[in-house]
Amino acid sequence: MMIRKLALAASAALALGLGGTALTLAQTAAPPTPASALRGPSSFAGIADRQARSVALFSEIGKVLTHPRCVNCHPATERPRQTDAMTLHQPLVVRGKDGHGAPGMECTTCHGKQNVDYGRVPGDPHWALAPASMAWEGKSLKDICEQVKDTSRNGGKDMAALIKHVTTDSLVLWGWKPGPGREPAPGTPAQFGALMQAWADTGAACPAS
C-alpha cells in the first residue's frame, strides 16, 4: 500500500507541476475555447427565427454529442473507442448481443461501478455501449439529430423521456466526471440539460448538414 501511495504522491506532484504550468498559460491566454465550454440558451435569444434558433441550439448540443466522451461508446462498428484521441479500445472488445460485451469478456470484466483512478479504468453502474441504432461515430450533426429524435431508434423515448435520460442517466452524466486523463464533455450537465430543453421548446429542429 505504501509503495502505491508513494507512486500516487509522485503522480500528484507531477500533475501539480503540469497544472501549475497550465495555470500560468491560462492566465495569459484567451478565454476558454468553444470546445471546452457551452453557450447557454440565452445566447441564442437574438435569433428571431424559431427554427433557426432551434438549429443553432442543436449545433451547440452537438459539441457534447460529438465529444470523445460520448462518441467512444456510440461507435459505428462493433468496437468501442477510448481516450481523447478516440483510438480503438484496448484490449479488443465488442458490442456483443446487448451492448455489454462478448461472453467471457463483458464490460464489467474491467469496468466497475465507479472510476478507478489508480488503474485509469473508468466505471459506472450502467457501463455499456449505446445500441447500434444510436451509433454517432462519423455521422453529421444532421444525422445525429434525426437519430436522437427518432423513437424507432432511440429506445422509444419521446422528447420528455429523452431530456430525462440525458439529464439523469448516470452513464450520460459520467461524461462530465470521467476521471483523470480524460477530457470531460464540454460545459456542465446543467448547461447541457438547459440546451436540450430549449431545443425541444423551439421545435427540436435539425441542421441541414
Binding site: 463483458e106 470484466t109 478507478v116 488503474g119
Partner: peptide, 22 residues
C-alpha cells in the same frame, strides 16, 4: 491497469480484474 488479465477472479460468478476492483 486491467490490461493483462493475470489477476482475473470471479465476483458473483463473473470474471473481473481484481487489480482494479476496490
Amino acid at each position: 491497469v486491467a490490461q493483462c488479465g493475470a489477476c482475473t477472479v470471479y465476483v458473483d460468478g463473473k470474471p473481473m480484474r481484481s487489480c482494479v476492483t476496490p
